[in-house]
Computed example of a mutant assay.
Amino acid sequence: MASFDRRDILKGAGAAALATATGMPAFAQSGGRVVVGTWGGDYARLLTKNVEDPILKPKGIEVVQDQAGDAPRRAKMVAEKRLPRGTVDIQGLSAANMFEMNEAGVLEQIDYSKLPNAKNLLPTMKYPYGMGHIYSGNVVIYNPKIISPAPKGFKDWLDPKWGSKIGFIDIQYQSIFIAASMAATGGKDMNDLEKAKEVLLAVKKAGARVYPTNEAFAQAMKNEEVGISAIWKARVVQWQNAGIPCEAVSPIEGIPTYVSGFVIQKNAPNKDNAYAYMDAMLAKAPQEAFAVDMGYNGTVTGLNVDPALHKRIGFTPEEEKTLKDLDYAFLAKNDAAMKEWWDKVFKG
């Protein structure tokens, strides 16, 4: 959900100019090639394993992954806006960043008639400018050995009584603002930034810790340096699988959703192949595989997910009623101010 700054824009513009000037293999060729912008690590590996190798390669479609963080990739999309042909066909972004890129005027409006598998796509995952691929919800994570009684929601997480056992993940600052606002308003408002700041300053004064990455926080949980925070439920499952002592609680204030989706650039060289890639991600087999491999919920109906796994990664029918999509327009408008306060006041 992070925004990008002027340095990201310059990097993106430089990369676009270099690709154009040197003839680097960034442009997808028609009839058999597609360039996919995605995060590296597990996501990229699982796209290859579950989508590209079993579905697209047998059709003769060559896939080239453009791996980078979302900020430089978004910067490059904006920098290439003036070009008749961009260097990437399809991009993986969070729902918030999909909204931002649509506002920037760089996205194709999706023709769902070109996606046969979209007939099974959940209505909430069908955006005019992109589609949801996988999703999870923001839950409270805690170590029962350290935190007792079990928390019930965000208000319990953000209780100063836990002192230095409260953990924050720096890159999740938007989610933290949302959770703090919900904690302060009993779940009635995700966007009350002033009340959120009051809650956060109270736990800062109590000694709450900030970790730069998900991985750094996971290590702190493993070492029992911290005992309570909030994170996507899928991440809790991954950490449980890695032997980190933690449990998940769906917050009583409501469950903010995280959607990882894909969009097609307006100036994509190979839009047909971009649609083919997008449709392949919505097929039953890869959707089920991502649930097993990554701990995220699929975005299409009719999946056959083991009940024990669904209990760990999914939500009960009652909890599903409390899932809350984010206010992407509000986040896009206020992201810079949120980040500035987070860096200068909360972390300062």
Rank of each mutant, 00 (worst) to 15 (best):
I146E: 12
I146Q: 13
I147W: 04
S148N: 15
S148V: 12
S148P: 11
S148R: 14
S148H: 15
P149V: 05
A150Y: 13
A150M: 13
A150V: 12
P151R: 04
P151A: 09
P151G: 08
K152H: 14
K152L: 13
G153A: 07
D156E: 07
D156T: 03
W157Q: 13
L158C: 05
D159A: 07
P160F: 05
P160T: 06
K161P: 06
K161Y: 05
W162H: 11
W162I: 04
W162K: 04
G163N: 10
G163K: 13
S164W: 13
S164D: 12
S164F: 12
K165P: 08
K165Q: 12
G167M: 03
F168K: 02
D170G: 08
I171A: 13
I171W: 15
I171P: 09
Q172A: 15
Q172L: 15
S175H: 14
S175N: 15
S175K: 13
I176M: 13
I178T: 08
I178G: 00
A179P: 02
A179V: 03
A179G: 06
A180R: 00
A180H: 00
S181E: 03
S181M: 05
S181I: 01
A183Y: 00
A183L: 02
G186E: 06
G187T: 03
G187C: 02
K188I: 07
M190I: 07
N191A: 13
D192I: 00
E194N: 11
E194I: 11
E194W: 11
K195Q: 09
K195P: 04
K195F: 04
K195G: 07
K195E: 05
